[in-house]
Design a binder for these strands. Structure first.
Length: 547
RNA sequence: GCGCCAGUAGCUCAGUUGGAUAGAGCAACAGCCUUCUAAGCUGUAGGUCGGGGGUUCGAUUCCCUCCUGGCGCGCCA
């Protein structure tokens, strides 16, 4: 048992002896100010009312009854309105570095998920244009969430859903066709709601070059397929540049060709919550929390987009994913209720909260002090590729993950470019590089540092204790971030820990001190290197040995 | 009008599920390189946590209400 666990047990026993009603679960937190101690509890304040005592008196009684020495507590004192602060023995704090060294790359992982299959769907852009900065945020978020789940014991699959069917694709084809005709000297208007971007003209040019038999673009279907294929290739390149890989790609068109859309409609009709009205087929989604019923099959006989959406999520369930997470822009949030309602209406045992959603607020791009309009159809946007080329993959990823998903993100391209050298990501990477530098200069193999035979009592500097506490808290932070599906906790943690590492590095030397202390500090340098490296790897950012 | 998400330092944003004197980066100002990388460290300044009520030992955090901004509210995706 670690010191914290022993401490919690002792406090529980003491509280029970004082007559506190079960359940007693003393909260042990890190104090806001590290000088207060290693751990703090508000137990005396929580129990003051039920026990009819003043918080500070109760705190004294708790301290007197608990066997704090057994938990490695050196000092316990009462502060403020009734906090009890604990300072542990040096060896109890620093000795935990051994856990980090022993686990190495596995430090911070757990089996909380018990190998349960979970599918994380993200990006899922229509193949109607290159990936823009909003997709970039999804790519960073989705990939990091998948990594978090993977490192906490879930069997994760990253999935990309291509909306390669429907009206938007028709318009894409027609748009390209219009450009082809234009090149041939004719005139054909780009359809209402079509695509005007430069890339449309480029695709038209390539089509003509590769299809000499159809210089005027008469073969509409072939043009459309060519455009979709071309854009998928482009999107794949963008994702590759960003370092994101998917395990599976699911095509919306396949839902039609293999009959799953029809099956789903039939199943919904049989389940009983559908009705016909005005020549359309409706689903009674209001029975499942929606504010109005939704059309499934339009008057013209085609399906609304939400039908294949439901069919698609049925496949996730059927493929064994008892948990599904969708990362989407908040502009799609109206689909949440609808898709869930459709799945519930099938009555096939899918849980109510299936799938889970991580909705992120939109990304605005600022360039030259002004907002850049992100409109695919007007042909003006900033792509992920541009961003990555400008400031680098690591920086882009880090920037995307610095903020909570549900806070708006304004990406100042100029700032990201000009300040690339003072980018926060370099701060974290530099801390890792500095730890690596110690081993390089000292000609010590990091892998040889095991902590065996080290006198951890020699690590007595407050700077060292703060750093050690941060390092051993890493697994707790990862677990919490995974449960909350909040990768931004990682960047926050990494920055804080890097700050402690820089300070320690600056104030205390490792290689120029007596051998016993050097051995102890090498374990700290090694543990820091491991934790920063593991954290960066988790969010897909490199951890350089030198910079 | 209804729903979702936000409002914290000049700017961009954190705030460990209700705790102590609210933090970081950038921007501003003042210092620190003969020692493992100055892509670093130290210090100063900067706040009615959108406003107002409520819940309790205690609220940036929970509840109510108003204000402001973003996004939704199609037989578009």
């Amino acid at each position: 048992m670690t010191a914290v666990e022993l401490l919690r047990a002792e406090l529980t026993r003491a509280a029970r002896e004082l007559g506190a009603p079960d359940p007693i679960e003393p909260a042990l937190d890190r104090p806001r100010d590290p000088s207060f101690g290693d751990w703090t509890t508000n137990l005396a304040m929580v129990l003051a009312r039920p026990l009819g005592m003043k918080p500070r008196d109760l705190a004294e009684a708790l301290i007197a009854r608990a066997d704090l020495g057994r938990a490695g507590v050196r000092v316990a004192d009462i502060a403020g309105p009734g906090f009890i602060n604990f300072r542990l023995e040096g060896a109890a704090v620093a000795g935990r570095l051994v856990e980090v060294l022993r686990a190495g790359a596995a430090f911070g992982t757990s089996d909380a998920g018990h190998g349960t299959p979970v599918v994380v769907e993200f990006v899922s852009a229509n193949p109607t244009g290159p990936l823009h900065v909003g997709h970039g945020r999804q790519a960073a978020l989705g990939d990091a969430i998948a990594s978090l789940l993977g490192s906490t014991g879930w069997a994760v699959s990253r999935e990309f859903y291509y909306n390669d069917a429907g009206a938007q694709i028709q318009k894409l084809g027609a748009s390209v066709q219009a450009r082809i005709v234009e090149r041939a000297g004719g005139a054909l208007a780009i359809p209402e709601g079509g695509y005007h971007g430069e890339y449309i003209a480029e695709i038209a040019e390539r089509y003509v070059a590769e299809h000499p038999g159809d210089p005027a673009g008469h073969e509409a279907e072939r043009v459309r397929e060519f455009a979709v294929a071309a854009l998928r290739v482009e999107q794949d390149r963008d994702l590759q540049a960003f370092g994101v890989r998917f395990d599976t790609y699911y095509l919306e068109s396949s839902l039609y060709t293999d009959g799953r859309v029809d099956e789903t409609v039939t199943a919904l009709q049989q389940a009983g919550d559908t009705y016909e009205n005005d020549g359309a087929l409706w689903l009674r989604t209001t029975a499942f929390g929606d504010d109005k019923d939704r059309v499934m099959r339009k008057q013209d006989g085609t399906f609304t987009y939400f039908v294949p959406d439901v069919a698609y999520h049925v496949t996730k369930w059927r493929r064994g994913y008892t948990r599904a997470i969708n990362v989407q822009g908040s502009d799609h949030h109206s689909t949440v209720t609808r898709v869930r309602a459709g799945l519930q209406a099938l009555r096939i045992g899918i849980p109510e909260g299936y799938p889970e959603y991580v909705l992120h607020q939109l990304v605005t791009v600022v360039r030259g002090g002004e907002d850049v309009k992100l409109s695919k159809r007007a042909g003006s946007y900033v792509t992920v590729r541009e961003l990555v080329d400008d400031v680098g993959r690591d920086a882009v990823r880090y920037f995307y993950l610095m903020r909570r998903a549900d806070s708006q993100l304004s990406f100042d391209v100029d700032l990201a470019r000009t300040q690339s050298e003072e980018n926060p990501v370099y701060y974290v990477q530099m801390a890792h590089a500095r730890m690596s530098g110690i081993f390089r200069v000292g000609e010590v193999d990091p892998a040889s540092v095991t902590g065996v035979g080290v006198d951890f009592g020699l690590l007595t500097e407050p700077d060292e204790w703060e750093l050690i506490n941060a390092l051993v808290d890493y697994p707790t932070m990862v677990s919490a971030a995974a449960v909350a599906l909040e990768p931004h906790r990682l960047t926050t943690y990494l920055h804080e820990t890097a700050e402690l590492a820089h300070r320690w590095y600056h104030r205390h030397h490792v290689l120029s001190v007596e051998p016993a202390l050097m051995a102890a500090r090498l374990t700290l340098a090694r543990a820091t290197q491991i934790v920063l490296g593991n954290g960066l790897a988790l969010i897909g950012i490199s951890a350089p040995e030198r910079m």
